[in-house]
Design a binder for these strands. Sequence first.
DNA 1: TTGTACGCGTTATCAT
DNA 2: ATGATAACGCGTACAA
Lengths: 332, 332
Amino acid sequence: MTSIKDVANHAKVSIATVSRALNGASNVTEATRKRILAAAKELNYHPNAMARSLVEKKSRIFGYIISGLKKGAKHCIVQDTLVGIYEYASSIGYEILMFAVDSNLQRSKSYVDFANEHALAGVIIQGLRTDDQYYREMIDGRIPCVLIDLPADSSRIGSVSIDNAAAAKEATLHLLAHGHRNIAFMTGVDEASVSTERSLGYLAALQQFGLAIKPEYLLHGNFSEDDAYTAVKDFLPASPEVSAVFCASDLMALGVLRAAKELNIKVPQELAVIGFDDILLAAYADPPLTTVHQDFTDLGFEAARMLYNIIKGQDVPHTRTVPHTFIVRKSG
Amino acid sequence: MTSIKDVANHAKVSIATVSRALNGASNVTEATRKRILAAAKELNYHPNAMARSLVEKKSRIFGYIISGLKKGAKHCIVQDTLVGIYEYASSIGYEILMFAVDSNLQRSKSYVDFANEHALAGVIIQGLRTDDQYYREMIDGRIPCVLIDLPADSSRIGSVSIDNAAAAKEATLHLLAHGHRNIAFMTGVDEASVSTERSLGYLAALQQFGLAIKPEYLLHGNFSEDDAYTAVKDFLPASPEVSAVFCASDLMALGVLRAAKELNIKVPQELAVIGFDDILLAAYADPPLTTVHQDFTDLGFEAARMLYNIIKGQDVPHTRTVPHTFIVRKSG
DNA sequence: TTGTACGCGTTATCAT
DNA sequence: ATGATAACGCGTACAA
């Protein structure tokens, strides 16, 4: 590999001048800069990323830390988010280094160690639960973090998500506007903040209509298709007055759809079902799912952009709400 | 950050001894090794990846180079593959650095530069066309490569894929066994080797049945749902004798399904449709797609495993065929 | 404006 | 078995 030394020799200058010229320092004659740039191009010189990171004590790499990267996922959330992160990162010459937590792999190190070892410029964290074992250590550390779908509880770190509460309220209001009065809510895992937000939106809508909250209408699906299926399989026959189920994720809505089919309950005639996320399968479900669309690519892009701003010390808001869309299809 | 120096001071030895102890060199007293390990653990020491890579002239990072990472993909191929790569990589303490080509981003550098800058231990390449501008430079370079779905044309590089020809033949034979004699084939982009392989399998099956090859039955869908839709929209009405279409990808099969629905052609009664890949949507299509299942997570895992073997100089085959499954659903 | 020289944290070579 | 020290390629403080 050609190093800065080669360029220096070729351009008849010292390595210091090469470094200055290539990094846009002002104190370099235009003539020598030209010569150096030409030499660099001719030799196809590219700075060694490790050497640079070593001396700068910081790499030009973003870590993308995700929980729940596992085989056979029914949605492309990681991929879609990655597209957005990648797009922004590549626009500023940064790379993406992956880290998956809890993919039941035995890892010898935590993502905190991971981030430190590589002197990551910053990390984007997604899918983590606030009770994760390394969460606090990471966001209290010296490496800038942006969280996707987790609230930022410190001014030092960033957070991007859609307005989950508003979106959930919107969905519930849609059901209410269509005459439904006994609406069940299928929540995800309690430790995910989006679960809380979405249930808050659901409750707010009921309240707006002056409806009483029935605790027995709160179902637990753990963001899992199977768990949701199991939950409603017992619940629906026992609660015939329930005419709609709003699910905190499409996957759970799919589980509800399957249960309804087996119970011979027609959707949407006898039971309206609304999901959340608008995963790819939502539009292809039978019937197609009415749901809240969130654009994970936008989320990823905004997360990366915010991370870079934080790194550069820009004084920008550390919380960003990305627009969502309520999509009415056939299921409710 | 705690460095090797801190550990050395804490354990009252030189940094050289620490390095030896931590890297499992034999010439270290068991007593001092214990002391060093204890110190390392107490100080939560983790070697600086950049410093190590710099001196070793090779990082412990795999590059994952993909073409076609773009927003709104209808399949999770990248994500699924990543899961497999990640699983193997993390089992050997390696990380994954991403690189997307041609996502119409202006990148200042090629993936060859990318790989060199980071002194990648090796790269896994997916979705690239053999006529890609940097392809030869990359695989002729000094960095080990494993290709997914591209044939290896050199003994230095690896290649993993399913047996595309056999799978395509299997699918075509299925149609033939069900009495179809006028079977159209929707191919992908010609520069993708899987297109060639799959059309070869199609042709082999016809030949086995002593059927003539009709060039007009060869449709071009460019692996695109819309292109496939357009292609059959004209073709099907003009060729009523065609009773089956075998598509080189599920996405194209989805396009055919859409066209058939608009043309009021019943699938599978009047037209059998078979896809390829078994993307998530395949099972949810209407009717569910009969298709060839390929496990991208396996593909990724095997690619990473092979890459590591090549790096370690293991004398193993550089071509690996991962099993596929023919899945009969309702469409054909 | 340009060059010299040091340091980043590690591995490896050579003494001891 | 252990320690001192040279490299790895780069940025930068300081000297010229």
